[in-house]
Structures are given as structure tokens and as C-alpha cells.
Design a binder for these strands. Structure first.
Lengths: 220, 220
DNA sequence: ATACATTTTTAGACTTGTCTAAATTTCATT
DNA sequence: AATGAAATTTAGACAAGTCTAAAAATGTAT
């Protein structure tokens, strides 16, 4: 079974919108993302459901099936491999890359992608730090490190803590640093090893005592 | 004004069919080439004529206008540049290349093609010996010919081959006739069209079957 | 819990590119 | 020049993907 360019785009965006919300993706959210109308989205969703690429109940939003997910992840793989090529080998600048990769990602040839992957040296991350799934659709393990050892400038995600006192837990909760929270490490101050992070558009200072007890993961 | 994938394909094939026949391209010839029906071709031709990309009089066949020709030549440029990339950098074999290049040639980005061209070192010919037009649509001077048509006495250089079977490749390798090898054409024997060449001070006989599959280039 | 606003779906229409079947034009042959 | 064959065009239909406008379902106030 084969997908059209358009179907692939729907699957890709359903995948991306699913990541943040647990719930099924709403028709309106998809319509906005795809710059189309809600009615068009409904039509396409029905078609994808008939092909067993998404699960769909009227008015309840969509989620990808295993099959749909595999296709979406494949497209992300292709997109990111092409981005590596464009940025590292053709000398593209950061912004120019996206639209072109958007077209290249729909070229259908396993051989092409396998050979491109090899040519690029089997990269695990694209130049923006996006993880590149392998041909089985498996993403590379993100790297884990304690926040007090993380390189300044990285985007990261809270993966765990090594201190479990109530005091620490409530402190974190108040800051919004719960499991899975994503933030950027902006700066580290050498004199006390405290750090400054940006979380949900807020700038927060963390002492070394806090930072050393937080496990974070990052890509690339 | 922008063309669809399909329109571009029509233009490309009209261009290729025009090359051999002087006359306008017939509806049936196009239909056969595009693996579609004559009626579909008529419909599309009317659309292309409305866009001033072809000249068309009912029952008289089509020819490209200047505008249509430019688009067709651009696609050939893209196709051949991608072929160079696939064959020389990704390690594709002779046959696999075509279908993939057929898709890649429709990616629309001047930036992409300019940078790819630069990456490849501004090649003038693809590995099959096809001349690559520049971005203005001008083809390089054709100083290139198959070995079985080359004038006796010339110094030449192997520029490409048109047969990619393992048997042929190992045969050439054994003879030392690799890409870039230089030799002189000493003699041609009319009775079987075999040729005698001198390569690295050795005299070698080549059958017509071998000679006809080797592209050579010569100066002036 | 009822009424209003928002979201989603349906119904019908349009475009692109295709097809089949029938009509028309051109060509080749006598 | 007439006629039958081949090539081409027209007419009408269809699938994909989109749209607008209207109907139905859901969510949210008070």
C-alpha cells in the first residue's frame, strides 16, 4: 500500500501534534497546521481511517495506528537526513533548509535513503539536534546527564531526580520542574555553580544543590 | 507561473521527442511515452497551450514555445545533476538511478540546484555522457561521442559507459579502461567494427560490443 | 440544566488529471 | 477522388483533494 504526498503530510503532522497532548489530535489543530479547512481535514481523516492508518471516532479527534506511526516516523527520518545533507554538504543556512527538506522527504526510495544515510555516516541527530530514527523507526537514546554537568545552551528535558525529600519535591513542583518538563540551559555561574534556565518563557535560577540532583536528557 | 509535476513531465517528454523529428510531437507518441491515453494527452496539451508553454493546432501535434523549452531544459539539468550525485556520491548502480532521478528532478528550488551543481564541481556531462545544460539552459559543446563512432587517430579519454553489468565493468577494469583513462584510437576493422587502441603503451583490441558502450571525449 | 458559542461533520460543488466510448479528421491506397 | 484505417479530438464520467455553507454535536456559562 502506498501513500500520496498529501496523505504523508497529514500523517506527519498528526504525529507531531500527538507528541504534546496525549489526547487525539483535533480537526481544527490539524487544519491550522496544514493551512487548510476543517472540512477538508475531516474528509482526509476518513480516508486515512479506511486505510487503517489512523484511529478515528467522530468528534473525538485522531490518533495514529502502528502503521500510520511507522509512515510518519519514516518521513521524519527522511526529512532529517536530508537536512543533514543540505546543511553539512551543500552549505545551506539554517532557515533555507526547511522548505526544501519538506519536498525531499516525500521522495520514495528505500535505496536512496539507505545510501544517503550511509553517505552521511549514519548520523543520529540532525544539525538542530533532532533525533533521527533508524530504518526500523527506532529513535536513538537521548543522552542523560546531571544538570550540573550539562553544556550551556542545550535544550533539555527533566528525566529524573536523585533526591526524594518532600522539601525538594515541593520546591521543584513550585518551579514547574516536573518530570518531562522541557527547558533551555542559559548560563552557569562559576563562583557558586548555580545555573539559569528558561522554562515556559520564564527565567529561573537554580542553585548547584538543586542542579546536581536533576537528571536531564538531551539530543545530539 | 508555476507548473505541476505532471505538466513538467509532459514538457520534458515533448522536448525529448522533438529532438529526433523536426515535426511537432504527435499525440500518440506522447501517450505511449507517458504511459497514458491519447485523450488525456489532448486535454493536457490544451492546458499547456493556454499557458503558452506549447504551440498547438488541432491534429497537427505540439512543439514547445521558448518558455516551455526553458522549463524542459531545466528539468533535464536537474535530472542529470541528480544522476551525477546518485552515481558518483551515493554509489548507485546504473539502472537504479533513473527512477529516483525522475522524482528528484521535480523538486523546485533554484538554491538547491545551484548548490548541488557547485557541490558536484559544475559537471558538464552526466555519467551516461548526457550533456548538462547550465542554469541559462545552454548545453556544453558536444565534444563527446561513443567509441564506435570516433574518428581513427584521435587521443581520447573515457568519460562514461552506457552498460553497467558486472561482467562489463570487470572486463573494463581488467583492460584498464576505467573512468578517466586516456588512450589513442589506432584503427577500426570494418568487417566486425572492432577497434584497436593504445593505452599505457599497450595495444588492445575491443569488439564493437565493447566499443559501442564507451563514451569518450576529445579536444577541439 | 438550559442556552449560546465553538468545534466538527455533512452536503454539494469545483479543479486536476485521468479514463472509455463515440465522433471527427487526416492519411494511405487504390 | 473515394474509401477504409489510423490518429486525434470531444463528450461525459470518475477519483483525489479542496472549498463554502449549513447542520449536528460538544463544551461552557450562568
Amino acid at each position: 500500500m502506498s501513500q500520496s504526498f498529501t496523505e504523508e503530510n497529514y500523517l506527519k503532522h498528526i504525529y507531531k501534534l500527538s507528541k504534546r497532548s496525549e489526547k487525539g489530535v483535533s480537526t481544527n489543530a490539524l487544519a491550522e497546521r496544514l493551512e487548510t479547512k476543517a472540512s477538508s481535514v475531516t474528509d482526509m481523516i476518513k480516508k486515512l481511517a479506511a486505510k487503517k492508518l489512523v484511529d478515528y471516532k467522530k468528534y473525538q479527534g485522531v490518533t495514529l495506528t502502528k502503521k500510520g506511526q511507522k509512515i510518519a516516523v519514516d518521513i521524519i527520518r527522511k526529512h532529517r537526513l536530508w537536512e543533514v545533507f543540505l546543511l553539512e554538504h551543500l552549505g545551506f543556512g539554517g532557515e533555507e533548509v526547511h522548505d526544501v527538506a519538506e519536498e525531499l522527504e516525500h521522495i520514495n526510495s528505500e535505496t536512496l535513503i539507505d545510501r544517503l544515510d550511509k553517505f552521511l555516516g549514519h548520523p543520529k541527530y540532525d544539525p538542530h539536534g533532532g533525533p533521527i530514527p533508524n530504518s526500523e523507526g527506532v529513535f536513538p537514546e537521548p543522552k542523560r546527564v546531571k544538570l550540573d554537568e550539562l553544556e550551556v545552551g542545550r535544550k533539555t528535558k527533566v528525566m529524573g531526580i536523585t533526591e526524594h525529600s518532600d522539601a525538594f519535591l515541593t520546591h521543584l513542583k513550585k518551579l514547574g520542574l516536573e518530570l518531562g518538563a522541557e527547558f533551555d540551559l542559559k548560563e552557569r555561574f562559576d563562583f557558586d555553580r548555580s545555573v539559569e534556565i528558561e522554562l515556559n518563557d520564564k527565567t529561573i535560577q537554580l542553585s548547584h544543590d538543586v542542579a546536581k540532583n536533576i537528571f536531564v536528557s538531551y539530543n545530539s
